[in-house]
Nucleic acid binder design. Structure first.
Lengths: 332, 332
DNA sequence: CTGTTAGCGCATTCAG
DNA sequence: CTGAATGCGCTAACAG
């Protein structure tokens, strides 16, 4: 293993000088020595030992990203946005997947703390469990007390900077647009009752219907994934329009209707939420609420890294969704 | 920042004892001291400084994963499989995305080397550029000379353990199945000429047709993504069956045909490759070659981490694909 | 079973 | 501008 010391010796300079030329120091080094060091490093195939550097500097160049599931395009898009920012700043990204297990989320925050990552990004919905939220928050506080920076994408109840998608507002806009198409009887494939993101979308949707004086939608709970949409769709009894609280669930719903010979949108309209890029070529094209997923991931990391937020109040930045009407919904 | 020394002092024991109970040592520690240390660590909110640990141990608990694009479900599935193995072994994963830039791939290997990751996983197709391949290989060799472990998913031309998908064989099987349906005139949406994965699939497909005495397919090159499939499909002139060399391209092709009023499979059959899970609900359901993506990612990491492969010859493990006939292709 | 001690590789004062 | 020396937090002999 080639060390800085090897390089220094090979170049006939001191350790300090080698360090200064090879790793971004503000200090200047004479051109001739600089050249010697660079050449020696090159010849020997020197690679900085980041662990040693981190230890000496007391700060790493790694950021931690906690997501539920990388194969869910929602998180992949968020991660992609965050990673672009990380790359721009020369940082590496450590990714942890919780598979929706809150315990694992807490454990990973502890692990990332141990890794002394520069910042932690928590993405994905919070859940309605005060005990879990409290423990997660404790772990985050511990991390922040020693200089760790945190940002979330989702609900802002962790006392951190957060990027908050306009779930309720977007769902309300969607409800109004759908009502504008003439629909009156709705069903909502509502996801798990304890998932705050799902809750927000359901309540935004239902709230808007209520304001319009329309009957309350039928609520069918289930998992937040494709299969959850598939199963829940089977229980819809009497609706002209079905709102699945995310696109992936809507895909499941479409499959369910198709298998049962129920045509979309002729027999029933279907809408989703998120506007997942991979699903844009679906037939029928999905009416949905577009969220700027990559931007959200990018912005969250920027907030976490942003120096000005040092000791200030946690900031919440709302990212509005925009209704996109497509072929899966039709006027009544 | 709470250090091991703080914990030791607080518990009234030596640094070594604290280290032994808190971090997986084989050495035993008496129950009473153990309890004291654990309590002290708990009270103080101690978190191991992994950088220091890595430096002292000379080995990290992180693995590096290099992919082209996380939002491509192919890589997301591979990453997911690899991350499951990593989690089982208590390792963290550092992810780097190259966005198909070979230079970045090389640079990331260097960076991951600097991080002293335990192993590097290279996923995604190699390209037909000897100069780039050589430089990547040099960088990998440098990493391996100091104990780094490497595995690839794709072509085995880097002298590393590799998981090789049965691209040619799968494509050949597909060609035979399609010919069995009565098709004679084929087109292949072939992706970029320099992408080896694309090449393998094209040649496997064309080879099988030749063996059957059928005319050579029309080859249309383009990018390896959705838009590549979309554009290439427009140039297909005279075929009853179109083979897109991956599912994501097939989605683009379906969109192209749909927009032009060409019905699939009534007017033309379409097949893909990979069997991406997120796309299983497509209409019409896509005929494709199923690759066990998560298993491939998992297996690759296992090979890299596997001790027995220490100094032996690089192993190549083939993962066969299985033809899945669905509705996007029909008998002629 | 427990404590003492010498590095791991690098950044960074502080002198020169 | 350059070099010598100190310490970052932890592990792993080694000694007791």
């Amino acid at each position: 293993m080639v060390t800085l010391e090897d390089v220094a010796r090979h170049a006939g300079v001191s350790l300090a000088t080698a360090s200064r030329v090879l790793n971004g120091s503000t200090r200047q080094v004479g051109a001739s020595l600089r050249a010697k060091v660079e050449q020696a490093a090159q010849q020997l195939g020197y690679r900085t030992n980041v662990a040693a550097q981190t230890l000496a500097r007391g700060a790493s160049n790694v950021i931690g990203l906690v997501v539920h599931d990388l194969t869910d395009p929602y998180f992949a898009a968020l991660a992609d946005g965050a990673m672009r920012v990380a790359e721009d700043r020369g940082m590496m990204v450590m990714v942890a997947t919780t598979h929706r297990d809150p315990e694992r989320e807490i454990a990973y925050v502890a692990t990332l703390n141990a890794q002394r990552v520069r910042a932690v990004l928590l993405s994905g919905s919070r859940i309605a469990d005060p005990a879990v939220t409290r423990r997660l928050r404790e772990e985050l506080d511990r991390y922040r007390q020693t200089g760790g920076r945190v940002a979330c994408v989702g609900q802002s109840l962790l006392g951190t900077d957060t990027v908050a998608p306009g779930n309720a507002e977007g769902a309300a806009d969607l409800a109004r647009a759908l009502a504008g198409l003439g629909h009156r009887r709705f069903a909502v494939l509502a996801g798990p009752p304890w998932l705050l993101t799902a809750q927000d979308r359901v309540s935004g949707f239902a709230g808007a219907l209520a304001e319009l004086g329309l009957p309350a939608p039928q609520l069918v709970h289930g998992t937040f994934d494709r299969d959850g949409g598939y199963s829940a769709a089977a229980e819809v009894t009497d609706a002209t329009c079905v709102f699945a609280v995310n696109d992936v669930m809507a895909v499941g719903a479409l499959a369910s209707f198709r298998e049962r010979g129920i045509r979309v949108p002729e027999d029933v309209s279907v809408a989703g939420f998120d506007d997942i890029a991979t699903l844009r070529d679906l037939v029928p094209a999905l009416t949905t609420v577009r969220l700027p997923l990559p931007d959200m991931g990018a912005r969250a990391l920027e907030m976490a890294l942003d120096e000005t937020g040092e000791s200030a109040e946690p900031r919440t930045e709302r990212m509005a969704g925009r209704v996109v009407l497509r072929e899966s919904t039709r006027p009544l």
